[in-house]
Amino acid sequence: MFELTTQNIGTLLLDGSTIFLLIGVLMLSTIMRKRGRQDDKLFFLLVIENMVIAVADIITYLADGKDFPGARFLNMFGVSVFYLVMIMLCMTWEQYATVRFKRSSMKLSKRRKLSFIPGIVMQFILVVNFFVSYVFYRDDSNRFNGLVFAVDRSNGYHYGILFVPMFLVMGFYMVVGFVLVAKYRTGSNKTLIPVWIYFIPLAVGLIVPFVFGGLSLTSIGIAMSMMFTHLGSASEITESVSEGGESA
């Protein structure tokens, strides 16, 4: 039977708050998107990806460990979507930092195209993992934990051999993005807005649930980090708008 536990309600609360916050930020940053800049478009994409992650997180937490019909499928599906979109978000973040702070064009050089290969390969593996793990479910006779993860017959979660490499791939893009933010902040951003403000919410969101368990702070940690980055750097935008020209 489906039962809403206190943890489920807590997850709904936190992930729901993420979506709430992001919708609000999206609606209120319309003027920035009207500039038509590439980094604004990437930020929009980041927000959408973050929302999808929050929804996938809710689905996963509601289905995890439960025995209602379809619970196992929902759990597998929710977790697969979560990781797929997480990888996409990490790659988008790296692109955003490159375009926004390093001021590169969105047009990809050969080297940047190559840097996307680990992310794309990992996403392909996750898609394969979903089908393979769902079919070859883990039970007493079959100890297959999936390529990345598997959900067994009693709706329990198990890590596969590529679980840690997946996090390393995500970490790679995230770290590159933050290094670009730290290195290429210029003008008012460099002197006024500390780099840790972008980094700490994300770190807390990832580390605290991992160490203490309980609720997921991932999506709200990412939301805060992305939001602080984008809104914090908006102080550059009025440098030349008073002349009616394009902003910095």
Partner: peptide, 17 residues
Amino acid sequence: TLLYAEMVNEKCYQDEK
């Protein structure tokens, strides 16, 4: 936080100096 986002919005319409 959303009010702050609006403050940022308003800044787009303002001459900085």
